[in-house]
Design a protein around this nucleic acid. Structure first.
Length: 315
DNA sequence: AAGGGACGCAACCGCCTCCTA
DNA sequence: ATAGGAGGCGGTTGCGTCCCT
């Protein structure tokens, strides 16, 4: 549910505290609960003149009856001028899924690669959107089953949608806003009809999606694929896919790993994966096939046809 | 129209690590 | 070396809003 736009969020945030006296607790001399306009103004003003940090003394010096932690959180998650509001874009969703597959619940680390997004926001996104899908699939969000689902269906679907949006917009889609970093991520996505490079350049705030001929298929390659759920290197596919995230100015970022969304070979070959067991799990959760849940429009008949085809061809 | 469930998100909590004296 | 404070981080909660029945 994306019914909270920027303005709404702000107005709601303040409207809900119009009757703050009823809602806020006063614990000793410290205030808790939603922040008031005056408090926000005080905090912004103080930081503008004195800078941030040393939050406990900052809270005292600014005359805020809040804990240092509360001030820090309010500033970082809401008041900071570069906080980016609004819906999580497709590109950001893709990045979150990818980074979470590598780092798990390292929200702050993930947030570092989404300019303007806070760890809190990403955490909320994960809990409300991603975990919802895991729940619908009746599987654990950390299970291989769900991770494979994300990797082989959800993420390729996102890439397709990004492609479509880019094509509609002339081939270049605006991405994740300004950034002081120059992290660059390049994906090469191979789907049924085309191979696409997804080049995410946070620093320049653009995503380019040039169409390329299909250069690799499972049928013409004997390359081994990852035997693990995503998050592990995909061996021997580098030449064919060239689907590596490029590291710039961040040594933590994708240390040599490769990823391959829509990798058909990978889809058919994970050892011990649920894909080798057929479509049982999908069929048991028919709402995913029937479109019972189309909130994110990540599934369609083509996906199911594709999966069925893969299983049949490997039977 | 009303009530209940689902959702989204701001804020809090507790634990951990780091820094400094 | 160590103790205490500050800050960071992930998990959780509370509440307003929306939607469906």
């Amino acid at each position: 549910m994306d019914h909270h736009e920027d303005g709404n969020k702000v107005s709601r945030n303040y409207s809900q505290i119009s009757d703050q006296d009823d809602q806020e607790e006063l614990t000793g001399d410290l205030r808790r609960g939603p922040w008031t306009v005056d408090e926000d103004f005080t905090l912004i003003n103080y930081i503008a003149h004195h800078g941030e940090g040393r939050w406990n003394s900052l809270a005292r010096s600014a005359g805020l009856k809040r804990t240092g932690k509360s001030c820090r959180l309010r500033w970082l998650n809401y008041l900071r001028p570069d906080v980016r509001r609004g819906n999580i874009t497709l590109e950001e969703q893709l990045l979150i899924l990818e980074l979470h597959s590598r780092w798990g619940n390292r929200w702050s680390k993930i947030a570092q690669h989404l300019p303007g997004r806070t760890d809190n926001e990403i955490k909320n996104y994960w809990r409300t959107r991603v975990q919802k899908h895991a729940k619908q699939l009746k599987c654990d969000v950390n299970s291989k089953q769900f991770k494979d689902t994300m990797r082989y269906l959800w993420m390729p679907r996102l890439v397709e949608r990004i492609q479509a949006a880019a094509a509609a917009g002339g081939g270049v889609a605006t991405a994740v806003g300004s950034s002081s970093t120059t992290t660059t991520t390049a994906y090469l996505f191979n789907n049924q009809n085309s191979t696409t490079t997804l080049d995410m350049t946070s620093g320049s705030s653009t995503i380019t999606l040039p169409q390329q001929p299909n250069t690799f298929t499972p049928e013409n390659s004997s390359a081994a694929a990852s035997s693990d759920s995503f998050g592990t290197p995909v061996s021997d596919l580098t030449e064919c896919y060239n689907n590596y995230p490029v590291v710039n100015n961040n040594q933590d970022y994708y240390p040599g790993n490769q990823i391959s969304y829509g990798d058909h070979q990978s889809l058919t070959s994970p050892t011990g994966g649920y894909f080798s067991q057929g479509l049982d799990f999908m069929e048991q959760n028919s709402q995913w096939i029937d479109g019972g849940d189309v909130s994110d429009s990540l599934w369609n008949v083509d996906d199911m046809w594709f999966l069925q085809h893969q299983f049949n061809s490997n039977a």
